[in-house]
């Protein structure tokens, strides 16, 4: 097994160098394809990051009705029951429910105003803002569904959320994801075609040798090994080049954003946070395309 891999590696490398110009051309094209794939991958990473950050700070306020005639005891019971009911709704982060005291909220709000503005609040009752539970959702894309369930709870006066914002974000992120998938498919196919053509050249140059190997009793996988390795090497080298280009452009973009917009990071992920995911995806994509592309080319010669 190890010997077979070693042999494939040696002969695959040899094939890569023998093909000189063709290898350079396909490295170039495949690198470009992987890079374009990477741009969309990086955008997707960032959008996912933004949505999850948004989700983290995003909260739904569930206001509680205090009946006119309710004394503190009764009201406490109502609050406890509402809390229980909230917990029963799906998609609620049950560990993260906090109580917001309406009077305090109103007081704090007024504390932030100046004297002029305060005048218009004179005479208003101090319990103007009802008490509420601040709730976090596990998946913010389900905000509408969850809010209607929350509103349906008995004793809930109102449910407040900024669902428009969520919809916009969800819309963008799903559009980008769909688009990215298509980009990935298209450029994977282009790379596949390019690599398979390069390998076809190696295979064609060595068809006599392949033929002799078949006569002597070589198995298909023995013959395929070096070609698949050659394809994978082209794919992996392209992946690495594309990775360095990505790193360089990502860092460049970050610097120019922070110098022109004067906002460091701008909510974008640091390269440190994505480089591992990026390089792993590149190498996996590159080697799969390489292996697959070359096995397409060899197959035809293995029929004898």
């Amino acid at each position: 097994m190890f010997r077979a891999i070693k042999r494939s590696f040696i002969e695959g490398t040899r094939g890569m160098f023998k093909n000189g110009l063709m290898t350079v051309t396909s490295l170039f094209v495949v690198t470009a394809c992987i890079f374009i794939f990477g741009v969309f991958l990086m955008i997707t990473f960032n959008i996912n990051h933004m949505t999850s950050e948004m989700a983290e700070s995003y909260q739904v306020d569930v206001y509680i009705t205090r009946p006119e005639d309710a004394d503190d005891n009764v009201y406490e019971n109502i609050k406890a029951r509402v809390l229980d009911d909230i917990r029963k709704v799906d998609n609620i982060d049950t560990a993260n429910i906090s109580f917001v005291d309406g009077k305090e909220k109103f007081k704090n709000y007024k504390a932030g105003l100046d004297k002029e503005d305060l005048k218009s609040f004179e005479g208003l009752p101090e319990d103007l803002i009802p008490d509420a539970f601040a709730v976090k959702l596990e998946d913010i894309s389900l905000v509408d569904e969850s809010c209607s369930k929350l509103s349906a709870i008995e004793g809930v006066e109102d449910v407040e959320n900024s669902s428009d914002l969520v919809e916009v974000i969800n819309g963008i992120s799903s559009a980008v994801k769909t688009f990215s998938v298509w980009i990935i498919v298209i450029f994977a196919l282009v790379s596949l075609f390019i690599i398979s053509n390069t390998i076809k050249l190696t295979v064609h140059n060595r068809r006599k040798e392949i033929n002799i190997m078949k006569y002597v009793g070589a198995t298909d996988s023995y013959i395929k090994g070096p070609f698949i390795m050659e394809g994978m090497l082209v794919g992996i080298v392209s992946a690495l080049i594309a990775f360095f280009i990505s790193q360089w452009s990502y860092l460049g973009l970050m610097t120019s954003i922070s110098t022109t917009v004067m906002v460091s990071s701008f909510g974008l992920l640091n390269f440190n946070d994505i480089w591992l995911r990026l390089i792993v995806s590149y190498v996996i994509l590159g080697s799969i395309i390489g292996a697959f592309g070359s096995s397409i080319s060899v197959r035809r010669y293995l029929k004898v």
Binding site: K208, E209, N211, I212, K214, Y215, V216, G217, T219, D220
Partner: peptide, 22 residues
């Protein structure tokens, strides 16, 4: 079957008119 052919061929030695050396 296609997969068995290599192993079958190992039981045969073949020589051709045109040598077929690498």
């Amino acid at each position: 079957r296609h997969k068995e052919i290599p192993y079958f061929r190992r039981t045969l030695g073949v020589v051709f008119q045109d040598f077929r050396l690498l």
